[in-house]
Design a protein around this nucleic acid. Structure first.
Lengths: 329, 329
DNA sequence: ATGCTGCCTGAGAGCGCTCTCACGGGGAGG
DNA sequence: CCTCCCCGTGAGAGCGCTCTCAGGCAGCAT
């Protein structure tokens, strides 16, 4: 038990050479059927499992991919389920390719450096970078290390790397158009962080529809958290007490907004209609259930993994979003 | 860029032997100060980073620890923030020890097998097993492989392995006592899965207080998800329409229960008082804000990592829980 | 029967690192 | 001034695996 069997041992047991065992284990063709069987039996009997480090040393591969969140850990692993879907999707797809996923948080400069070292040390043969703020240099740095990199969300400054993104603009437009169709006159928005693509694009979608429908925009900014949503809602109510609708750029913030509205004595949707973005599971459980824009997070994860694994596909992927109408509008 | 510098290269550049460079890189004592400096300069100039596979091959260490969830991925990475806290805690502590964390899902038999192979292949030098159902054989199997294993949550059948657990019994007792003190007469519970320690212990706590206070118990079972909470609440209302309080074994289920209560026209807390368990962030955002039992998830993660890393500590750790009173009671 | 082609197998050289062991030289003690 | 010791350094042997290369043998054509 203490010491694991090596290729050598298996070879001895099967009465063949190391090379042959290696061939069998790696599923190489051209091994005599009887010999193959003998080897497999020896492997079975000894409970042989190839040593990863030894293999990796010679193949220069690690069969491991990292999903890096360029974000303080609080948000990623708090309870924003957007990340959860992505993680699961990536994980599923990677499993099919028999690769292992490791999650890394790189919210700080130290974090960036850790990821870099980890990559350089040869732990990884691919990296997915998610939730970037501003012009995050990390993806480009990693790519320069000679390793495949894909981005989750369009990089704010095109870095030429492949990426997968949600169609945020269209989603926002659907949401706001819906509010317009419902006859709302004063439609505000709680936007996401101005240094994140999801924040920017959703705000642009809002602006566009508002402009086309001849309404004026009423804007507050949040950072995608519940607390910031509540805060922004209070500001909005101060700015324009007569607003009758609000498009919130994330469900988490919408939950905060709902609470602020409740505390301000406004009824939803009677006084103020609310639309969120993300369609997290708990959107069904709010009072009232939240109208929101669904985005395919699981699929995003899968596409990210696929893009990373497929060497000759590098075109960006844009995933559709869809309005889900519930009782908050 | 294509080919990373090796120890050899650094040695050549610094005009010393490989052994010496290795000593410097690994912080060994007894290297002349001037030579050490020369080596460090060479390392710097060449951007040398030790190859992980080569090192691991000889040291037999991987400097990597896995956190495996013996649970279908849906729950772990949905939006139950209990896991999030644990993950962050483990991650923090591991970072201090300069080890990398990898997350593995092992909800299926295939998953178990994957984790086993991964461990045997030498990827890991420690495993934390979380959210076990029933008499999960995984921890013991892994331990038999000769690798440190700790369990998150007391194993349902003592397997002799070190573990960290929340004081679920006491938490439940606090919650139910609180309900009793509030003068509630018919106190029901929505229990967790009967094959999970958290489910069992919380139910026991409930039972104990109820018995002592001469009330009869009214029980429904859920699986810690929102949907199951809603379902269980409806059952409870059927069973005893006159119930005036419910202790719910998880916040997620409590959210479901709140919704079911709302739909049944019951006011909270006027008609029915509700206490949850976990104190997830969104517990503040429900209507009304949820009274619940807080558990130190971050700390749990840290303790798990500490227990794993410290070879000569194997005593179980029991973490305190604390009632947080809000408006739902 | 002999030569040749082609397929299967084995031998052996590393991959980049750590670590043991031996060695050289300087300081202290005789 | 010589010997002993110890400290700092280098040489070299692997860790377990993959992969190239060459050798052997069967089968076919001549």
């Amino acid at each position: 038990m203490t010491t694991r069997p090596t290729l050598e041992k298996v070879a001895a047991r099967a009465g063949v050479s190391r090379a042959t065992v290696s061939r069998v284990v790696n599923g190489s063709a051209s091994v005599g059927e009887d010999i193959r069987r003998a080897v497999l039996r020896a492997v079975e009997e000894l409970g042989y499992v190839p040593n990863f480090a030894a293999r990796s040393l010679v193949t220069q591969r690690a069969d491991t991919v990292a999903l890096v969140f360029s974000e303080p850990p609080v948000r990623v692993f708090s309870d924003d389920p957007t990340f959860a879907g992505i993680i699961r999707g990536v994980s599923q797809e990677l499993e099919l390719a028999d690769k292992q996923l490791v999650l890394m948080l790189a919210g700080s400069a130290r974090g960036h450096e850790r990821v870099e070292r980890y990559t350089t040390a040869g732990h990884l043969d691919g990296v997915i970078v998610a939730s970037m703020h501003g012009a995050d240099p990390l993806p480009a740095v990693l790519a320069r290390l000679g390793i495949p990199v894909v981005c989750s969300g369009r990089p704010i400054t095109g870095n030429g790397l492949p990426y997968v993104d949600m169609d945020n603009v269209s989603g926002a437009m659907q949401a706001v158009s819906h509010l317009v169709e419902r006859g709302r006159r004063r439609i505000a928005t709680i936007a996401g962080p101005p240094d994140m693509v999801a924040g920017i694009d959703r705000l642009n979608g809002y602006r566009e529809v508002l402009r086309d429908s001849g309404r004026r925009s009423i804007i507050a900014i949040g950072d995608f958290t519940r607390d910031s949503g509540a805060l922004a809602m209070r500001q909005l109510l101060d700015d324009d007490p007569a607003l009758d609708a609000v498009f919130v750029a994330s469900d988490m913030m919408a939950f905060g907004a709902l609470k602020a509205l409740r505390e301000a004595g406004r009824r939803v949707p009677d006084d103020v209609a609310v639309v969120g973005f993300d369609d997290v599971p708990s959107a069904v459980y709010t009072d009232p259930p939240l109208t929101t824009v669904r985005q395919p997070t699981l699929r995003m994860g899968r596409e990210l993994a696929r893009l990373l694994l497929d060497p000759d596909q590098s075109a960006p992927v844009l995933l559709p979003t869809e309005l889900v109408v519930r009782e908050s509008t």
